[in-house]
Amino acid sequence: MTETACQDGRDHYEVTGGGPVLLVLPGGAGHPMGLGPLVERLATRFTVVTYDPLGLAHGRLGLPVAEQRVAVWSEGAHRVLEAVLPKGEPAYVFGTSSGGIAVLDLLARHPGRLAHVVAHEPPCVTVLPDGVERRAELIGRLDGPGRPPAEGESATPMGVFLARILHPFTRYAPAAVPAGVPLTLAAGADSHGHVLYRTAEFLAERLGGAFTELPGGHLGTLEHPVEFADRLAESLLSGARSPS
């Protein structure tokens, strides 16, 4: 198992493991902090490509960041796939939280070489019938007083997320899913009864995708990395589209 860090001036990502390509988009501001155990487990079955949309883990934390757009993240993810995918091979894709929103947009824009997409608790709550109220509650809960800095020496990924990502990403409404690409919406087993569990269930029905539970809550990737990775791998490989 080898590990490499790659960048081409715009796109920052790391590659580890062996097997079919699995693109991972972290949540929050896209910084893959804490995902090491999950990636290590997944890398026993996949070539894991961890995309860092803002390059925060690659020396850019603290630099100015503009308000983010979902399409910019998904187009960056597409460029990364174009760079790493062997000819004729489809990719598996997993995104959690804000990364889950980005993979839904990737699926809508570039479905051609995607074998199976799993979006875990994407916070695009405006799709709900009471989405305006739920979004206001979500933002109010997360973006209260005491926000950490988004720029400068004291900048944190959470500060970047709250200042530049939370508001635009939670306004996103996924487009219809192209026919023929398996999509699974996932929620944490411990999130039952919470708004993001309800959002994932609603999106699965609206977009015609499957729904599954994964271990833990919204941060299940960090709370139960081994169990989460094993259950995610089962979900990705089940019903995946074959190479064309």
Rank of each mutant, 00 (worst) to 15 (best):
E40Q: 12
E40I: 00
A43H: 04
T44G: 15
V48F: 01
V48T: 02
V49G: 08
T50R: 04
D52N: 12
L54K: 03
A57T: 06
H58N: 14
R60G: 08
R60P: 00
L61A: 11
L63I: 04
L63P: 05
P64R: 13
V65W: 01
A66I: 07
V70W: 05
V72Y: 02
V72S: 13
S74K: 01
S74T: 01
E82N: 06
G88E: 10
E89H: 06
A91Y: 07
S98C: 12
I101Y: 07
A102Q: 10
V103C: 08
V103G: 05
L104N: 11
P111T: 08
G112A: 15
R113S: 15
R113C: 10
A115D: 00
H116F: 11
V117C: 11
V117R: 09
V118C: 14
P122G: 09
P122W: 02
P122N: 04
L128I: 12
L128S: 10
D130S: 10
D130G: 04
G131N: 06
R135I: 13
A136V: 14
E137P: 07
E137S: 10
L138C: 01
L142T: 03
G144I: 11
G146P: 09
R147C: 12
E151D: 14
E153Y: 00
T156Y: 12
P157V: 07
L166C: 03
H167R: 15
F169M: 10
T170D: 08
T170I: 09
